[in-house]
């Protein structure tokens, strides 16, 4: 099963990280960055499959397509921001991680503005 593959990979990477961190901490960050990247590369196609299904369902339900595109964009931003923040937090740089997450939040808010505007218009239309 796939989960075994992922767990095995994680354990091997963790063991190597502990070994490397003893002697060369600066190499440990590169190794953890690399392990995270490989796992992400393994997951992304799965997420896009899920989104394909979502889009198909949304199409049938008649939801506007550009909302889903924005949702996809927000998901990607959150994904990458969390990846970067976690890497820097692992290495003990908590403040840097918070800054990265702040940047991610701002970008997500920027991406969500059209949807908020559309909702407001809808609400105004409903009012007598």
């Amino acid at each position: 099963m796939e989960i075994l593959l992922i767990v095995a990979f994680g354990v091997v990477a963790t063991v190597l990280l502990v070994v490397i961190r003893q002697t060369k901490p600066e190499l440990a960050i590169v190794l953890s960055l690399d392990a995270g990247t490989i796992l992400l590369l393994y997951f992304i196609p799965r997420i896009v499959e899920i989104f394909g299904l979502l889009q198909a369902l949304a199409g049938r339900a008649g939801i506007r397509m550009d909302f889903l595109a924005t949702l996809l964009k927000i998901m990607a931003i959150a994904y990458i921001a969390e990846f970067g923040a976690q890497i820097s937090r692992d290495m003990g740089e908590g403040t840097l991680a918070n800054k990265i997450e702040l940047g991610g939040k701002i970008l997500i808010l920027l991406a969500a503005i059209p949807i908020i505007a559309a909702i407001l218009q809808l609400v105004l239309k409903l009012l007598p």
Binding site: F9, L16, I20, T23, K24, L27, D34, A35, I38
Partner: peptide, 21 residues
């Protein structure tokens, strides 16, 4: 799921540590 890069990096790390000592 190419794991060889992880082992390459670990090898370089250990080699550098030994060379340093």
């Amino acid at each position: 799921m190419n794991v060889d890069l992880i082992f390459k990096i670990a090898g370089v790390g250990i080699l550098v540590a030994i060379l340093h000592t």
